[in-house]
Simulated scan of single mutants.
Amino acid sequence: MAAIDGPRVTAKSGKARQLVVFLHGFGADGADLIEIGRQWRSFLPDADFVAPHAPERCAMSPMGRQWFPLTMRDPDERWRGVIAARPTLDAFLDEELEKRGMDERSLALVGFSQGTMMALHAGLRRRVAPRAILGYSGILVLGPAQPGAERPAQNPPPNVLLVHGEEDELIPIDAMMLSANSLADMNVPAQWHMSAGLGHGIDNAGLIHGALFLAQSFGVKVEFGRR
């Protein structure tokens, strides 16, 4: 199993008490999302941010990476993909938490597109749930079995926010509502935000919603006048 790593942004306060891990989309790499960490330092001054590169080179975008292959021809490829990629991601999360002396409740996973698939799949299967999972433009991947199959009993469950563009041409907006309903079936309540007029991407409103969601999840008070 290959180790993964990527760009990092250290805590603004100089003392990390939380860890935010960005999981990029298909054909991108960690550099695609780490800038968000720089933007969120004022909201989360005690957070370290890291955006690992996915373990595989992307066949459709050789300069980018993928968590797992996507052909769009096999209805089960996402399920098999998240299962295959999860051990590599789990090992990375374990190492990052251990070297900081943090527990799972100090962790937040932030995904985009394929990265959201990984964040939800892996986060919901950690022995102890991360504090928060924030998913942009993605979907909860369900397997052929029951929606809650192969999941430990996480108590409490993670806080979850799903953010999606109303005009997403790659993963339609319906995916957000289907994911929220499936999470509810797993007893994992999910908040959601729809970005009007947005395609497959992240807009400023989504970034602000995400930052405030993470701050609230970690119990961080945000004072807008003093950011």
Results as ranks from 00 to 15, higher is better:
His53Arg: 08
Met60Tyr: 10
Gln66Leu: 02
Ala51Met: 11
Ser61Met: 13
Val50Met: 13
Ala59Arg: 13
Phe43Cys: 07
Pro45Ile: 01
Asp48Ala: 08
Pro69Leu: 05
Met60Trp: 12
Ser42Cys: 09
Ala59Thr: 10
Asp46Asn: 13
Glu56Tyr: 13
Ala54Pro: 04
Ala51Leu: 11
Arg41Tyr: 06
Val50Ala: 10
Phe43Arg: 04
Pro69Arg: 03
Val50Phe: 12
Arg41Pro: 04
Leu70Cys: 06
Trp67Glu: 04
Ser42Phe: 12
Ala59Pro: 00
Ala51His: 11
His53Ser: 14
Arg41Gln: 15
Arg65Gln: 07
Pro45Thr: 06
Arg57Lys: 11
Ala59Leu: 09
Cys58Glu: 04
Gln66Asn: 09
Pro69Asp: 05
Met60Gln: 15
Phe49Val: 08
Arg38His: 13
Met63Leu: 14
Ala47Asn: 10
Pro69Tyr: 04
Met60Asn: 14
Met60His: 14
Arg57Asn: 04
Met60Ala: 15
Leu44Ser: 09
Ala51Lys: 08
Ala47Gly: 08
Glu56Gln: 10
Cys58Pro: 13
His53Pro: 01
Ala51Gly: 08
Phe43Met: 05
Ser42Pro: 00
Glu56Pro: 00
Trp67Gln: 07
Ala47Ser: 15
Glu56Lys: 02
Arg65His: 15
Arg38Phe: 06
Phe49Gly: 05
Met60Ser: 15
Leu44Asp: 08
Phe68Pro: 06
Met60Thr: 14
Leu70Met: 14
Gln39Tyr: 10
Thr71Ser: 15
Gln39Val: 00
Asp46Ser: 08
Phe43Val: 06
Ala54Trp: 01
Thr71Trp: 12
Phe68Glu: 02
Ala59Gln: 11
His53Leu: 00
Met63His: 11
Phe43Lys: 03
Pro52Arg: 04
Phe49Thr: 09
Met63Asn: 12
Arg41Leu: 07
Arg41Glu: 14
Pro52Glu: 07
Trp40Ala: 08
Leu70Arg: 14
Trp67Cys: 04
Leu70Gly: 11
Gln39Cys: 05
Trp40Thr: 00
Thr71Ile: 09
Phe43Pro: 04
Pro52Asp: 05
Pro45Lys: 10
Leu44Lys: 09
Pro45His: 05
Val50Asp: 07
Gln66Trp: 05
Arg38Val: 11
Arg38Asn: 12
Ala51Asn: 09
Pro55Met: 01
